[in-house]
Amino acid sequence: MSEPVSALRGESYDGHIRVEEAGLRGMITVRGDLSSEAVARAVGEVSGVEVPGPNAANASDARGLCWMSPDELLLLVPHAEAGETLRRLSDALAGEHALVVDVSDARATFRLTGAPVREVLAKLTPADVSPGVFELGAFRRTRLAQVPAAIWMRDAQTAEVVCFRSVARYMFDLLATAARPGGEVGYF
């Protein structure tokens, strides 16, 4: 099989924060009744973490669960394991009213690193990203400029942006422009 490549092949930009494409991620969309014990158990077993609450992610580096909507989760796994995980999850959810789809190659992920990371996000999104509201581990779907995206606060100086692969170039240019030296606002 051909070699899988990420949308921008790990391109990066160093401004007053560092913007880099985070490379390939295994991503599986899970749709189902999240309040159902059977669904929660199956998803928990396969992912190894508990189902997160609304607008939060329960994930370490490349593994875990992100809350997408009242009936949707995003399961993160290393890219090479996506196919196998999908099979295991489909088996675990057999008989349940649920849907699992491998969306790994339909997404692009960007990692933002640096102290003013909230500022760069705040330039592009209407979401409130201030420290008291957008806490560590928070995961929120919103828009960045003209495209939908999910933003995730990994730690005090790291955020991640997940968007559609088709808009990866737009997203990278957008983030890089917002991170250009001289563009510091100093609000947060």
Binding site: P54, N55, S69, P70, P126, A127, D128, R140, R141, T142, R143
Partner: peptide, 11 residues
């Protein structure tokens, strides 16, 4: 009321 965030009109 579904996800509990205060959403801007543009969202």
């Amino acid at each position: 009321p579904n996800c509990g965030v205060d959403a801007d009109e543009t969202e």
